[in-house]
Nucleic acid binder design. Structure first.
Length: 893
DNA sequence: GCGGACTGCTTACCT
DNA sequence: ACAGGTAAGCAGTCCGCG
C-alpha cells in the first residue's frame, strides 16, 4: 500500500464570534487537533494527523496553500475532514521540445510559476511508438493554463517559432484540471475509502467476500487476462460498501417587489425572508424573517418542524450559514444559480456586515461550492439527459422541482393562490418547507438511490462528487480514459491530432447534416401478428466496440498490414496488432453489467439491500454504456473520433442484416427490426435457439430473447407499433396516442382502444373487438362534433426548446401561445411546457386558460383524432372515414 | 391572390 | 453538449395560373 506524504495543517472547524456555537466534540481517533488562532482560518475545517476510514468524496485545488485539497467524509462522526497534498507532486504539461530548446523561451523561463524541466518517455498511441517529451513542471496550475495572458501552455507554441522558425511545437495534457491530474497520477479513487495515518493518505481495503471474487473470476474465465483484470478492478470499486450521507436540503425564499419577477441573484437586492433546512438526521427547521404587517396565519405545520423567527436578516443568514458549515452534504435544487448564489451575493452587501470567513459559499462563474462540505445541485443532475433517459427511463419530462417530485416521490409543490407578499408566515413556511421536502426526498427515495447512483458514478469516472453531478456523460468517460492512459504511461492525445489523422467518415447519413450513416430500421410488415418473439443483442454497440477492438488508436492504425482488416460498408480498417483501451474498458464494463450486476439485481436469493445496490450499479453502468458509442461521434468529446462511431454503426448494420438473413434461412418470418432487435412471427423454440447459437458462433455476440407478445399490431410506419403481452398489458411504441404533448381528450380515446386490444386473446376475438373500437372512435368523434368537452382536455402541451424570442426561422404554434402569455405578463422560460388549444380565429392557437368552448377549431381536432387512430386502424383493416360515416364527397366539401 | 408542391424547422419519440 | 433514424405538423417559399 502506498503512503502519500503531505503537509499537515491545523485542526477542525471552530466558530469564534460573532457566531455562537457549541464546542466541537473531539472524536477519539483524532490524535492531534491544533486550533488555529489566525482569524482567517476560523472557519476552515482542518486536517487531522490521523483519521479513521473515510470516504474520498471531493477534491479541489487550494490556491493559498498551493495544494490539492481532498475532502474526506468520515461516516461515524458524519463529518468532513480535509487532507492536503504536499510538494511531491506539481502541475505540469508536456512538450515535444527538448529542455535546451525550451530554455530559449524568455517568457517561459521568466514565468514566476515555472519550476523545472524533466525528460520523460511516453507511448504515443497515434504514432504507435514511444516518444521523448519534456515535462514542464510549474509551481501552480494557473501558471500552466491560467486565464491571465502568458501562461505556459500558450507561451511555448506562441514563442518558439519566433526563435526557431516554423518547427512544429506542441504541448499535451495542458487542459487537465490539476486536482484530476493529481488523482490520476497518484492512482486515487474518488468514492472509495481512505484513512489518514501520520499525515499520510492511505487507501483502506474493505472486507470483500472471497466468494464474490472467485465467482467473478469463474464467470469470466474465458475472457482475456487483460479484460479479466479490468473486470476485477471495476468490481473492486463497485462492490465497496456505501456510507450513510448526512445531508441537509436547503431552500430559500426572497422578497420581491414585483410579484411575477424572481429576484436576480447577481444583484441580490432584496432580503431573504425564509429558509428551510431539512436534515437527513430528522432536523426540520424553517427560518422566518420578521416583517411588518405580516400575519402569523392559521396553518398548522407538522409538530416536528421547528419554526424560528429572526428580527434581522443578518441573524437569519448566520443561522443558515452555520448549517452550511456543519453539514457534510448540502442538497439544493438549482442552488448553483439561485439559492446559494443569492445567499453568497447577499452576504457581500455591506449593510449586512459579513466577514469573508463567515460565508460558507464559494461562488464560481457557473457553480457555487462550499468551503467546507459538498454541494450537490439536483437540478443539474436530473437535467442530464443520460440520467433522465437511462437511469430514470424518462419517468419525468420537465426538469422542475414540481414535475420531479410528482414523478419520483409523488409529492408536488404547494400551489400559491396569492403573491409572496400576501402570504402569512405559516403559508410561506409551508411553501418553503415543501420545496425542501421534495429536494431532500429526491435523494432519499428508494433507499437513497440517488446518493448511491452519484457515488457509483464517482467511482467509475474518478471525479469528485460535485463534478459528477454537474457534468455530462462525455466528461465522465473522458475522465476514466485519461486515468487509464496515465496508468499505462500513454500520452493523452490532443483532440486536433486525432482529428487530423482520423477525422473523416466515408458513409453518407440519411439525415441531412449528420456525419455518418447510423442504424437500420427494417420496414415493418403491416397487420396483426400473433405469437411474436423479440430478440435483441444485449448492449449491441458496446459489444461491437469490445469484439471488434474499436478505439481511436486502432481505427485507421498506421500499420500497412492491418489495412485488409476492413469494416464492412466503409473504407475504415481496424488494427490487428494492438488492443484499444476503449475496447478493453467499455468491453469490461459491458460484461460486468450484463453477466454480473444485471442478473444479481434480480437475484431473489440476495438480500433486498444487496439487490438494490446492484440495481444502482447496473443502472450507472447502463448510463455510461449507452453513451459509450455516441461520445466518439460527439465533437465536444476529448477523444472525438468519428470513424470509430461510424465503424460501430456499420458493424451494427452488418450484424442485424446478417441476422435477418440467417433467420430467413432458418425459415423464420421477420416482421420488423430496429438497430439491435428483430421481431419474429411465431418462431419455434428450436428456431430461436438456432439463431442464438448462430449469432454466438458467427458474430461472437449474444443475441437474446428479449420479450414475447401474444400479438403485435404494425402499420407501415417505422418506430410505431403496439404489442400485447401474455398477461394483457400493452407495450406501446411511438404511437401518437401515447405522446406526451397530445391532449388528454385524444389520449383517453386512445387508451380505451388500447384497453380493448389488451383483452383480445385470439384471432377469433378480433371481430368483436373491432366493432367496439369502431364504437369508441364514433363516440369521440361525436363528442367533438357536439362540443361535449372542456377546453382543458383539448390542450396540447409542448415544451419550449428556446426562449420565445429565440425562434427566428419559424414560429411554431406553442411559441405563438407562449408569446400571448408573455403579453399577459407571464414569466416564460426555456423548458416550460406551453398549454394551448387550437382555435378558428387567426393565429389559430390560444393559451388554454384564455379559451372558451365556442372558439375551438373542432375540425382540427377531428383531423388529429383520425391521424392518432389511423396508426392502428390501418393494421386492423378499418377506415376512419367509414367509421364516422364520412364519404369522400364530405371530405371534399 | 391563391393553392399545391416542396423544403425546413420543431418536437417527441425509438434504438 | 453521447449518436443517428423516424413520424408528424406546421411555417415558409416557390411556382403556376389567361
Amino acid at each position: 500500500m502506498k503512503e502519500l506524504n503531505k503537509m499537515a495543517v491545523a485542526s477542525f472547524q471552530v466558530f469564534l464570534s460573532p457566531v455562537k456555537r457549541e464546542e466541537v466534540e473531539e472524536t477519539p481517533f483524532l490524535s492531534s487537533i491544533k486550533l488555529s488562532s489566525k482569524s482567517k482560518a476560523n472557519f476552515r475545517p482542518v486536517v487531522p494527523q490521523n483519521l479513521s476510514s473515510s470516504y474520498f468524496v471531493s477534491a479541489t485545488y487550494d490556491g493559498e496553500k498551493r495544494a490539492v485539497c481532498i475532502k474526506l467524509y468520515e461516516p461515524k462522526s458524519a463529518k468532513i475532514y480535509f487532507w492536503y497534498s504536499g510538494t511531491e507532486h506539481r502541475p505540469y504539461c508536456l512538450s515535444n521540445l527538448p529542455p535546451q530548446e525550451l530554455e530559449k523561451l524568455d517568457r517561459l523561463m521568466s514565468h514566476p510559476g515555472f519550476d523545472h524541466f524533466e525528460t520523460v518517455r511516453r507511448y504515443d498511441l497515434l504514432l504507435d511508438r514511444e516518444v521523448n517529451l519534456t515535462k514542464v513542471v510549474a509551481k501552480d496550475p494557473l501558471a500552466i493554463g491560467g486565464r491571465a495572458k502568458g501562461c505556459i501552455r500558450d507561451v511555448i507554441p506562441e514563442d518558439y517559432p519566433k526563435v526557431a522558425g516554423n518547427q512544429k511545437v506542441k504541448v499535451w495534457e495542458a487542459f487537465i484540471k490539476y486536482y484530476q491530474c493529481y488523482i490520476y497520477d497518484q492512482d486515487l479513487a474518488p468514492g472509495m475509502i481512505y484513512r489518514v495515518a501520520n499525515g499520510g493518505l492511505v487507501p483502506v481495503e474493505y472486507e470483500r467476500s472471497e466468494d464474490v471474487v472467485n465467482e467473478i473470476r469463474q464467470l469470466f474465465q474465458n475472457e482475456s487476462k487483460e479484460l479479466l483484470h479490468h473486470i476485477e478492478n471495476w468490481a473492486r470499486l463497485l462492490e465497496c460498501p456505501v456510507p450513510d450521507f448526512r445531508r441537509v436540503a436547503l431552500d430559500i425564499e426572497v422578497f420581491s417587489p414585483v410579484a411575477t419577477r424572481v429576484p436576480d441573484p447577481a444583484e441580490a437586492a432584496y432580503p431573504v425572508i425564509c429558509a428551510s433546512l431539512l436534515g437527513s438526521d430528522g432536523r426540520k427547521r424553517v427560518l422566518l424573517l420578521k416583517r411588518e404587517g405580516v400575519e402569523y396565519g392559521a396553518e398548522k405545520l407538522p409538530p416536528d418542524v421547528k419554526i424560528e423567527f429572526y428580527n434581522s436578516e443578518r441573524e437569519l443568514l448566520l443561522k443558515v450559514f452555520e448549517a452550511l458549515w456543519d453539514y457534510p452534504f448540502v442538497i439544493t435544487f438549482n442552488g448553483d444559480d439561485f439559492d446559494l448564489r443569492y445567499l453568497w451575493r447577499r452576504a457581500q452587501n455591506p449593510e449586512l456586515n459579513f466577514r469573508r470567513s463567515e460565508v460558507p459559499i464559494e461562488a464560481g462563474r457557473r457553480v457555487c461550492l462550499l468551503a467546507h462540505g459538498i454541494h450537490l445541485d439536483l437540478y443539474k443532475f436530473f437535467f442530464n439527459r443520460s440520467i433522465q433517459v437511462y437511469a430514470f427511463s424518462q419517468k419525468y419530462r420537465g426538469v422542475t422541482l414540481d414535475e420531479l417530485g410528482e414523478a419520483l416521490i409523488g409529492k408536488t409543490k404547494i400551489e400559491l393562490k396569492k403573491t409572496f407578499q400576501e402570504l402569512t408566515y405559516t403559508e410561506l413556511a409551508q411553501y418553503c418547507l415543501r420545496d425542501a421536502e421534495i429536494t431532500l426526498g429526491l435523494t432519499t427515495f428508494d433507499n437513497d438511490l440517488v446518493m448511491k447512483l452519484i457515488l457509483a458514478l464517482t467511482r467509475i469516472s474518478r471525479m469528485p462528487m460535485e463534478d459528477v453531478t454537474r457534468q455530462g456523460v462525455s466528461r465522465w468517460i473522458k475522465s476514466f480514459l485519461q486515468y487509464e492512459h496515465r496508468r499505462r504511461n500513454m500520452l493523452i492525445p490532443n483532440a486536433e491530432d486525432i482529428l487530423a489523422l482520423k477525422g473523416r467518415t466515408t458513409t453518407k447519413a440519411i439525415i441531412k447534416g449528420k456525419k455518418y450513416k447510423g442504424a437500420i430500421v427494417v420496414e415493418p410488415k403491416p397487420g396483426v401478428h400473433f405469437n411474436v418473439a423479440v430478440m435483441d443483442f444485449s448492449s449491441l454497440y458496446p459489444s461491437i466496440i469490445k469484439v471488434h477492438n474499436l478505439g481511436y488508436q486502432t481505427i485507421l492504425c498506421p500499420h500497412q498490414e492491418c489495412k485488409v482488416n476492413k469494416v464492412p460498408e466503409t473504407d475504415n480498417w481496424v488494427c490487428t496488432k494492438r488492443k484499444a483501451l476503449e475496447s478493453l474498458l467499455i468491453g469490461s464494463l459491458r460484461d460486468l453489467r450484463v453477466e454480473w450486476y444485471k442478473p444479481r439485481s434480480r437475484d431473489e436469493t440476495l438480500s433486498s439491500e444487496m439487490r438494490s445496490w446492484y440495481n444502482v450499479i447496473q443502472s450507472a453502468l447502463k448510463v455510461i454504456l449507452n453513451a459509450s458509442y455516441g461520445v466518439f461521434g460527439a465533437e465536444a468529446f476529448d477523444l472525438y473520433c468519428p470513424p470509430v462511431a461510424e465503424a460501430t454503426a456499420a458493424i451494427g448494420r452488418h450484424a442485424i442484416t446478417q441476422t435477418i438473413k440467417s433467420a430467413q434461412e432458418l425459415g423464420i418470418n421477420v416482421i420488423y427490426g430496429d438497430t439491435d432487435s428483430i421481431f419474429l412471427r411465431s418462431p419455434s423454440p428450436e428456431q430461436v435457439d438456432s439463431l442464438m447459437k448462430w449469432s454466438e458462433r458467427d458474430l461472437g455476440m449474444d443475441l437474446d430473447l428479449d420479450k414475447a407478445y401474444r400479438y403485435s399490431v404494425f402499420s407501415s410506419r417505422k418506430k410505431n407499433y403496439l404489442g400485447v403481452f401474455p398477461d394483457g398489458s400493452v407495450d406501446i411504441k411511438g404511437l401518437t396516442g401515447k405522446k406526451s404533448h397530445v391532449p388528454v381528450f385524444l389520449k383517453k380515446a386512445f387508451l380505451e382502444m388500447v384497453n380493448r386490444l389488451g383483452k383480445v386473446e385470439s384471432p377469433a376475438e378480433f371481430q368483436e373487438a373491432k366493432r367496439e373500437i369502431q364504437r369508441i372512435v364514433r363516440d369521440y368523434y361525436l363528442k367533438l362534433k357536439r362540443r361535449e368537452f372542456e377546453p382543458e382536455e383539448l390542450a396540447f402541451e409542448v415544451v419550449l426548446g428556446k426562449m420565445p424570442g429565440g425562434y427566428v426561422k419559424t414560429t411554431p404554434q406553442h411559441v405563438k401561445a407562449a408569446r400571448l402569455l408573455q403579453d399577459k405578463g407571464k414569466d416564460i422560460k426555456v423548458g416550460d411546457s406551453i398549454r394551448f388549444v387550437k382555435v378558428v380565429k387567426d393565429p389559430h392557437v390560444k393559451p388554454v386558460d384564455l379559451v372558451s368552448k365556442s372558439e375551438v377549431d373542432v375540425d382540427k381536432y377531428i383531423a388529429y383524432l383520425q391521424s392518432t387512430f389511423d396508426q392502428v386502424l390501418d393494421a386492423l383493416g378499418l377506415n376512419f372515414d367509414e367509421i364516422i360515416g364520412r364519404t369522400s364527397l364530405d371530405r371534399f366539401m
